[in-house]
Design a protein around this nucleic acid. Structure first.
Length: 640
DNA sequence: GGGAAAACT
């Protein structure tokens, strides 16, 4: 059965007109003087930032840069920046906003000789790529005048005037320096993503702007929620719109809804296209098919993509307030995502996008935007950060979208049980320490407490392993072998200890990737865990927490570790019932041990890391714990 | 006896 396609008008129907007017405009502009007119036509020979003569490459790149759409509005932008504390810029994909706007800002009047500008990105990769790219354009070395800062990688110096960083990293910086005083201008980029960190920064920066009249904020988004953003920033922030430069993308819809989007996607890829292109320079002939997650929806450009097949679904996080569990659900995408997916086809030349749904469902069923992450998350960690930022009154904190009050209450409750807050709701010294760890509060609690149980080395390892992806690989073609390999790491008392075994074995085998491969261990996950562990140990050492291990030959070795685990996870405990199922203590949910667990018995009490809703309710990563140990560490009310 | 996200600190 083939799929009937219905052709719809191009998303960029006005493109030709737009391009014509653009080229007319650029001719006009090259005659007239644009911003810094004479200077732009005859750029200075000495680079202001490193006092070196400009290279030939600089001039070549400058020519390219000046052809980007955002340059048409450089003057307008600089005027708006001069006259306003906050401004909003909507720039479509391909307009050059991420690379050019920060450079414009550096040229703005009134910021002094060496301003420092921060520009946030939603991902590490875009932050690093943007920094490298802009350093070239500015004819400086990345890490000096232009730098970046992402977790595990800081590449900037005291000379840095422009720093790209992940939004989470700027939030971290704000925790140490709430007024972010080292920056003259902060640019929040890709805010349409509405990540948790961006939303917290929005509300926080709104306060900072009142306290620092000299600070300027530029908010950049790929598409418009103009009223929302403008209304949020007191209605005073001006809005600029820059059209992107994309090639036209034809959109096709299916005539009927598709039942199986995977099957339909494969069928579409194999049938509805022209033959693949001939081979290039002796390479294999044909067409490359990229299977991508939602990373392709972001500003990351994959060169040469012409066709996009969009099944119309995404897997995204939802938070179930009633059972206090985050889970993943496959759900329809929003219109914004659909358009971003289509945009991928038009980056390098005109393209086509095949949507595996009807135009009717696009128009009538898809929401304009996904709910921002802050409305779909457990906020325990976020609330800890907010407290550290100095937010005393969560109820009146100015979120752009306000989370359900119950979600905030739950978060406060968890933090209170963990001992992060005192009775007045202020951070305790323990809470202060916990907030420094890039971990969920249960985990930071067990880390801080672990020295007392003489097992901080082991708990740091377990926390790191829990932070990484599942380290056990199970390739379809070698399931049995993978299962056997896994059993060799298994610890009969539970999965947390199994993770400890895996890490130890990894280190004993010199972090050898081949060893990982042979034992069906995900080498990348282990490498990541090792990075995390190093960072955690760094923070612990800074706080003067002793790094120590119990005597391995003592019978108390594992008991100590599990007691420290319990000190953080006493709210994630389940009790075996007579019918063989477990009941979670805090929310009375009937659950089963996930079959991947490493125990040969069903303990009366277990600590679990995750609650997963799949074919049934499972608890995953579980460890045997004595009831008495729980009573020792848990506040009375949590076990009732 | 099972089912897989992305990103961030």
């Amino acid at each position: 059965m083939g799929t009937e396609w219905k052709r719809k008008v191009s998303l960029f129907g006005a493109f030709d007109d737009y391009e014509a007017s653009l080229s007319a405009l650029s001719t006009k502009l090259s005659r007239a003087s644009i911003s810094g007119g004479a200077a732009a036509a005859n750029p200075p020979r000495i680079n202001r930032w490193n006092r070196r003569p400009y290279s030939a490459r600089y001039l070549k790149l400058l020519k390219k840069r000046r052809a980007l759409p955002v340059w048409q509005q450089k003057d307008e932008f600089l005027r708006a920046l001069r006259d306003n504390q906050t401004l909003i810029l909507v720039g479509e994909t391909g307009c050059g906003k991420t690379t050019q706007i920060p450079q414009f800002v550096l040229e703005a009047e009134g910021l002094g000789d060496r301003p420092v500008v921060a520009c946030t990105q939603p991902s590490r990769i875009t932050a690093m790529l943007a920094a490298r790219h802009v350093a070239q354009e500015m004819d400086v070395t990345v890490g000096y005048e232009v730098g970046y800062s992402v977790r595990f990688e800081h590449c900037w110096s005291r000379k840095t005037v422009l720093k790209y960083l992940t939004d989470g990293m700027l939030l971290r910086e704000a925790m140490a320096d709430p007024l972010l005083e080292k920056y003259n201008v902060i640019i929040l980029d890709e805010v349409h993503d509405r990540t948790l960190a961006t939303d917290v920064l929005f509300a926080h920066l709104k306060e900072v702007l009142k306290k620092r009249p000299g600070l300027k904020l530029v908010v950049m988004s790929a598409y418009l929620e103009a009223e929302k953003f403008q209304g949020y920033f007191s209605g005073a922030a001006p809005l600029m719109k820059v059209h992107g430069r994309l090639h036209p993308v034809d959109i096709f819809y299916t005539q009927k809804p598709e039942r199986d989007y995977l099957e339909a996607a494969i069928r579409t890829a194999l049938k509805v296209f022209e033959p693949g292109p001939p081979s290039l320079r002796g390479g294999p002939p044909g067409r490359k098919i990229v299977v991508s997650t939602n990373i392709a929806e972001t500003s990351l450009t994959i060169d040469g993509i012409v066709y996009v097949i969009d099944p119309g679904f995404t897997k995204h996080k939802v938070y179930n307030l009633r059972i206090r569990v985050e889970s993943l659900l496959v759900s329809p995408i929003c219109k914004g995502s659909a358009n971003q997916r289509a945009d991928c086809a038009g980056r390098t030349r005109p393209g086509k996008c095949f949507r595996l749904y009807t135009d009717k469902s696009f128009n009538e069923d898809l929401q304009p935007q996904t709910y921002p992450e802050i409305l779909r998350s457990n906020l325990a960690y976020t609330v800890l950060i907010l407290k550290k930022l100095g937010v005393d009154d969560l109820v009146h904190f100015d979120f752009m979208d306000y989370p359900a009050p119950e979600t905030l209450m739950r978060a406060l409750e968890v933090l209170n049980y963990l001992g992060a807050f005192d009775d007045e709701g202020n951070l305790t010294p323990l809470g202060e320490m916990m907030s420094e760890f890039p971990l969920d509060p249960q985990m930071s609690k067990m880390l801080v407490i672990s020295s007392k149980y003489n097992c901080s080395n082991e708990i740091a390892t377990i926390a790191a392993m829990l932070s990484a992806q599942n380290c056990f690989l199970r390739p379809r073609e070698a399931r049995k072998a993978a299962g056997e390999a896994r059993v060799r790491f298994g610890h009969i008392d539970g999965d947390h200890l199994t993770l400890l075994n895996v890490y130890h074995a990894y280190k004993q085998n010199d972090e050898d990737p081949q060893w990982c491969y042979d034992h069906f261990i995900n080498a990348r996950a282990l490498k990541y865990a090792d990075n995390v562990r190093r960072q955690l140990v760094g923070i612990m050492t800074r706080f003067g927490l002793k790094m120590c291990s119990p005597n391995f030959n003592s019978s108390a070795y594992y008991a100590n570790i599990i007691k420290a685990l319990a000190a953080g996870y006493f709210m994630q405990v389940a009790l075996l019932e007579q019918n063989g199922h477990y009941r979670t203590v805090k929310n009375n949910q009937i659950v089963d041990l996930h079959p991947s667990n490493s125990m040969y018995h069903k303990p009366e009490w277990v600590i679990f890391d995750e609650f997963v809703l799949t074919t049934r309710n499972f608890i995953r990563t579980v460890t045997d714990v004595r009831g008495k140990w729980l009573i020792d560490v848990a506040p009375q009310s949590t076990l009732l």
